[in-house]
Design a protein around this nucleic acid. Sequence first.
RNA 1: CGGAGCGUAGCGCAGUUGGUAGCGCGCUUGGUUUGGGACCAAGAGGUCGAGAGUUCGAAUCUCUCCGCUCCGACCA
Length: 561
Amino acid sequence: MVRRQSELFLPTLRDDPADADAASHRLLVRAGMIRQVSAGLWSFLPAGWRVHERIVQIVREEMDAIGGQEMSMPVLTPIELWEKTARDGIPELFRLNDRAGRRYVLAMTHEETVTFHFSELGSYRDLPKILYHFQTKGRDEPRSRGGLLRVREFVMKDAYTFDRDEAGLDASFQKHARAYEKVFDRCELEVFAVQAESGMMGGSESIDYLAPSGSGENTLVTCANGDYAADLEVARGIPRSPTFPERLEGPEEIATPGIGTIDELAGFLGIDPAATSKAMPVTRDDGTVVLSLIRGDDRLEEAKLAAALGSGFRLSTEDEIRAAFGADPGSLGPVGFRGEVIADDMLREGQFVAGANRTGWHLRGVEQGRDFTARFADIRQPVEGDGCPACGGRLGFQTAIEVGHIFKLGTTYSTPLGATFLDEDGVEQPVLMGSYGIGPGRIMAASVEQRHDEHGIVWPRSIAPYDAHVLALHGSAPEVLDPAVEVADLLAGGGLEVLLDDRAQRPGEKFADADLLGVPIRITVGKKTLDDGAVDVRLRATGSDDRIPRETVLNWIEEIE
RNA sequence: CGGAGCGUAGCGCAGUUGGUAGCGCGCUUGGUUUGGGACCAAGAGGUCGAGAGUUCGAAUCUCUCCGCUCCGACCA
């Protein structure tokens, strides 16, 4: 197909939009692909939608390849379904009423709906199944940002699997993991598959797909050796070993007047900050105060603590702290504390300085087991340069975008929604489910983040808005436009999607717009070369130029592929 | 929801002690141009985010509200 640029709705901008920070935000807006309607609400303009739909098609093909069946479920969902799974209280749910006062939500995901439908099946003979759809999701995000990076309404491909047993669920899960790898390969997107938190989805196992990016919401932790990749929230790093002072037979009180921070404490005592401990009291949702304890030079990873506690929590208030410890924050420690202590694994070995639970006093030589007992877990946040848990190499951090996430849900949804089947023995069993999401808009943004230069976007062929961009310099002049149309038709006849810049604009503006839009192959038709019957072809990715006879352009393109 | 900032033409911005709104880009018309965002000339385009107040007079001062951005909290 040939699209004439003079007809295309493609409002490119010469300047960056004022509030755009992320490269993808900046360039997608400038290239005339997306426009903002309101906070977190974006329209895709024609060229941008073509990219989106090409990604959608790749996802569709890979889903179909693993036996997925495409369907469609409504965005508007009666709230009763969400009440059954106790997800009606999620703050991100958009809620609304119809004229009769019936209550609805805008689906933020479709586990409830798909499981509701699945209940119509009832036999082990119906299993397994893979159902999926592309549908708009609504999420009342407290803070949308960065163009397409985090939005309040977006299209997601969500797939759901139904299996009779763990082995089946595992097989379904692995199929999706492989399909996702293929999707990202085909989109030429660099993506790391990492273990992740299951968050509000529940379930046992999940894999997050993170695309390294100049801008994003996740921090990807990787080892240079390629042995390890994880999201910062679950990553495990091995910090340096502390330099401990001489061992003491028992804890020894020491006055530390006015000292509140670890740096002050370590400086005052003349010791390694890593030989101190930091006490961070938190209050569980049920109101009990728990003491979380980490090494003095570490930071608490709240996601890990939440997982270890198995409940929500918040930092304790000063009043709660005084009531529980009888001391001010800054002098707290595990020795003598009557409540639960959860300590970081790094405190298992050695003697540390800890607060004495007496304002202005600390204890030296505190060791676990002898002086206090605690439950140990990995609750520290890794830092760059930590040792890799797999190989001992150095860990590095990268900003990343979450482009997909797959979950083993088990019976989390099937039980409350009554999705069961009868096995061969006529026994009713809950079906085991998995759920698998991928965001085409985020893939689009991540691709731009990974592939752009100072002039604009550099799309991979697979998801580019067009395969080839034919520029007719002196566009309105028939002696140039006619051969340009010929070239465009030739390419289209060879199966390419072609954008023909037939506008009357000056050459420089056409080149600049072409660079911005980022179509992989550019063919320039101008007076300069037409005398020789030639055109110039340039690859956006490499900037390489070739001058070739215009009738052989298609062969040239086939050759380079 | 906390902190910071910004709302003036399609986009990017200026507007001093309050006196009735401007610049660049873009757009329209005519002309000269045309291989990396041309030039000349003539034009069109604004409830100055909204409301209330102070004032003879408000883009400008006061109050309230709304919207948007960034940081944090949050995040299937």
